[in-house]
Simulated scan of single mutants.
Amino acid sequence: MPLVPVKELLEKAEAGGYAVGAFNCNNMEIIQAIVDAAEAEKAPVIVQASQGAIKYAGLEYITALTRVAAEHASVPVALHLDHGTSFEQVMQCIRYGFTSVMIDGSKLSLEENIALTNKVLDVARAVGVSVEAELGKIGGTEDDITVDEWEANMTDPGEAKTFVEATGVDSLAVAIGTAHGQYKGTPKLDFERLRKIKELVKVPIVLHGSSGVPDDAIRRAIELGVRKVNIDTNLREAFVAGVKEIITANPKEIDPRKILGPAKKAMSAVIREKIRLFGSAGKA
């Protein structure tokens, strides 16, 4: 079936009380693993591409590969830009056929973030493309964040209300204690902050940096209103583990298919587990 907007998937998730998995892609095998897992679990799914993925694989390749995967799938598939940082890049992704975009103005002031998001919304709405925005800064492996700085980066519930009312954005990514990349310890999510945000904000909430977050914490976040959960690092870990296993067992192997095939299966198994955790299995 054709690619669908993320908004369509999240509205159903909101009504059903579950979350849709958004999995980052970098090449053909990862896209196949994502859609294969969604098919096996009869679940809606979001394939998303980051700045790094677009630079590595190329916008044309990512769009074409995902479109082909969706056309051969019996479950709804959306193609989403993860952390778009400029109006120009967002427009380019829309032009190439992305059905959803994230405009990340979280480093800007609240007023500037609202203005940039509305600029994107003006165009995206006209062509039926979903828009995700971010409020609060989500840490990453390259950021040396202390406890005090971490707290300062958390999403303010009152600002979230102001932001959503001023934009009418389709979904909102919030900072409640997750981070991008591998965690050194166990992340502690601020569920009270999430509860307050959801009380004030009537759009689906997005949780970034969810790889490595304990399952019970993910379930609680979904109970409190998270409707899109982003996973990237767990896929990379599964991919690399699959490749290492084959090369270690068969150091003379030179057939890429025999190396990447098992890695694809390893990723697909992880994605299926996440889909069940998010409650979206059987929701296609």
Results as ranks from 00 to 15, higher is better:
Ala78Asp: 09
Leu79Ser: 03
His80Gly: 00
His80Lys: 00
Asp82Cys: 00
Gly84Pro: 00
Ser86Leu: 05
Glu88Met: 03
Gln89Lys: 11
Gln89Ile: 13
Val90Lys: 02
Val90Leu: 01
Met91Val: 12
Met91Ala: 09
Met91Pro: 06
Cys93Tyr: 02
Cys93Trp: 01
Cys93Arg: 01
Arg95Gln: 11
Tyr96Glu: 14
Gly97Tyr: 09
Phe98Gly: 15
Phe98Lys: 11
Thr99Asp: 10
Thr99Phe: 08
Ser100Phe: 12
Val101Phe: 06
Val101Gly: 09
Met102Pro: 07
Ile103Ala: 02
Ile103Lys: 05
Gly105Asp: 06
Gly105Ser: 05
Ser106Tyr: 03
Ser106Arg: 03
Ser106Asn: 04
Leu108Phe: 14
Leu108Val: 13
Leu108Met: 11
Ser109Leu: 13
Leu110Ser: 15
Glu112Gln: 15
Ala115Thr: 02
Thr117His: 04
Thr117Pro: 03
Asn118Tyr: 08
Asn118Val: 08
Lys119Gln: 09
Lys119His: 10
Val120Lys: 04
Val120Leu: 08
Val120Asn: 05
Val120Thr: 07
Leu121Glu: 09
Asp122Ser: 06
Asp122Glu: 13
Val123Trp: 07
Val123Gln: 07
Ala124Ser: 07
Ala124Met: 07
Arg125Phe: 02
Val129His: 09
Val129Met: 09
Ser130Asp: 13
Glu132Gln: 08
Glu132Phe: 03
Ala133Lys: 05
Glu134Ile: 03
Leu135Asp: 02
Gly136Asp: 00
Gly136Phe: 01
Lys137Ala: 05
Lys137Pro: 05
Lys137Asn: 07
Gly139Phe: 05
Gly140Arg: 11
Gly140Trp: 10
Thr141Pro: 15
Thr141Ala: 11
Asp143Glu: 12
Asp143Ala: 11
Ile145Ser: 03
Ile145Met: 05
Asp148Arg: 02
Glu149Ile: 06
Glu149Ala: 06
Ala152Lys: 11
Ala152Asp: 09
Asn153Trp: 12
Asn153Glu: 15
Met154Phe: 11
Met154Ala: 13
Asp156Arg: 06
Pro157Trp: 00
Pro157Cys: 02
Pro157Asp: 06
